[in-house]
Each structure stands twice: as structure tokens, then as C-alpha cells.
């Protein structure tokens, strides 16, 4: 059982302009239409939710760590303690416009089922995750022969809450497997800046340190997944 919020661990070092919201949060927020209903799964201390509410979004959150929940509630956010792996099943179909999974995917036990639930509960899903296909990680594994540790992923293999790393390529395959339609994708470099140039996927998979995907249900995929 995780007792820490994975998001706090991973993104503690993510770049942010002074006094402003985190860049990856801004990228996620850009993908959400103002005035919509949003569920942030694994919402940490509620900073993304707060950013969204400032933009007129009706936001809810669930978070595993008690510290994160209590900090969020103290900010006036509608956040409850819960586990993405078990509690999403309790939400009704189409309850939200967007379900967000920010820097949490790799810490879930069943990432594929989590994505399926997100697309059942919400019309759209926004998923951001650290890309394990980034060249620095590949080089570390190749040259050092050990599980890579980076500034943004500082944990040793035995105490990391991140149990299901994936690459951008892996994630794209999973999306087609669960019948999700990729509406938008953004990769961020090591400095948290968007990779702007139009590039093929292999380039993003090599140079993107973070990825943010906006998904929607394929009309044909229906709402079958429970």
C-alpha cells in the first residue's frame, strides 16, 4: 500500500516559472474546457484542482495519501480519500466531462483498468506521466546496468511508489487496446517546456521527459467496460 503521493515525489523538481503554476499542470489545464465537471484522480495536495477551479471548472478529487487529502480539503476543495485502483468502480457512468490522472498512472496497480474506468466515468480522460523511453533513462540503463534514477524519478527500485512505468510508445499501444481516441498529445522536455516542433512519435519517445494525452471514448467502443 502506498503511503505517499507519487505525484509529490515525481514532480517536486518539475520546472515552474516563479510564483506560477507548474508547467505540466498548465498543459493539463489547457486541455480542459472551462465550466466543465472534472474528477482529478490522485490529486495530491490539490494544486491542479485549485488551478482548474480558478478557471471556472467544477472539480472533485480523490487522493490516496491522508496528508494530501487533508491539505486539499483545507484549501476548500472537494477531495476525498480513495484509491484509484479500487474506488473508480463506484462512480457512475458519464459523471464527469473530464477525468484527470496527473503523474499517477505509473503508481497504480492496474493502469489499464484505471484508464478504462476513466473513459467510462468521463467523456474525456487526461493522462500525464513520466516517459520511461526518454534518452537519459535509456542511456543510464545501457551504461550503468542499474534501474535509472533521475532528478524527477529519484527513488531506488525497492522504495519507489512507481510500479508500472511506461514509455510514450507503450501508452499509445494501450490506448488503442482499450479503444481510446487520442485527441491531443503534448511532450515536455527536461526543462518542462513543450516540444513544439512537429516530430514523429519516435522523436517524442526519445526526447520527451513528460507526456500529456487527451483521450476520448471511441463512439464504437461504447460504454461496455465496467
Amino acid at each position: 500500500m502506498l503511503n505517499r503521493s507519487p505525484r509529490d515525489l515525481i514532480t517536486a523538481n518539475l520546472s515552474r516559472s516563479p510564483g506560477a503554476a507548474r508547467v505540466d499542470h498548465l498543459v493539463v489545464a489547457e486541455m480542459v474546457a472551462p465550466g466543465s465537471r472534472v474528477l482529478d484522480v490522485g490529486c495530491g495536495d490539490g494544486e491542479l484542482l485549485r488551478l482548474l477551479e480558478l478557471r471556472g471548472v467544477d472539480g472533485r478529487g480523490i487522493e490516496l495519501s491522508r496528508e494530501g487529502v487533508n491539505a486539499s480539503v483545507a484549501k476548500g476543495l472537494a477531495v476525498i480519500q480513495g484509491d484509484a485502483d479500487t474506488d473508480l468502480a463506484d462512480y457512475p457512468n458519464d459523471a464527469f466531462d473530464y477525468v484527470i490522472l496527473s503523474q499517477t498512472l505509473q503508481a497504480t496497480r492496474k493502469p489499464r483498468e484505471v484508464i478504462e474506468h476513466m473513459l467510462r466515468i468521463g467523456r474525456h480522460a487526461v493522462v500525464s506521466f513520466p516517459n520511461f523511453g526518454h534518452w537519459k533513462i535509456r542511456v543510464k540503463l545501457l551504461l550503468e546496468g542499474q534501474m535509472p534514477r533521475t532528478k524527477n524519478l529519484p527513488d531506488t527500485w525497492y522504495d519507489t511508489p512507481n510500479i508500472h512505468f511506461c514509455t510514450i510508445k507503450d501508452f499509445r499501444q494501450t490506448c488503442s487496446l482499450v479503444g481510446a481516441k487520442m485527441e491531443k498529445a503534448v511532450a515536455l522536455n527536461a526543462w518542462g517546456q513543450q516540444l513544439r516542433l512537429p516530430a514523429p512519435w519516435w522523436f517524442w519517445n526519445l526526447f520527451g521527459e513528460q507526456a500529456v494525452f487527451l483521450l476520448s471514448r471511441r463512439p464504437s467502443s461504447g460504454n461496455a467496460s465496467k
Binding site: V69, V73, A78, I80, P92
Partner: peptide, 18 residues
């Protein structure tokens, strides 16, 4: 209580204090 409120998409916060 939270479970029931969630099922109705109510706006709910829930904190357990140690």
C-alpha cells in the same frame, strides 16, 4: 456517507484525521 454522495455526484470532501 461519502460513497452515497459520490454516487449522486454531490460535491463532497472527506477527511479522516489521525
Amino acid at each position: 456517507i461519502v460513497h452515497a454522495l459520490n454516487a449522486g455526484s454531490a460535491r463532497v470532501s472527506f477527511a479522516e484525521i489521525v
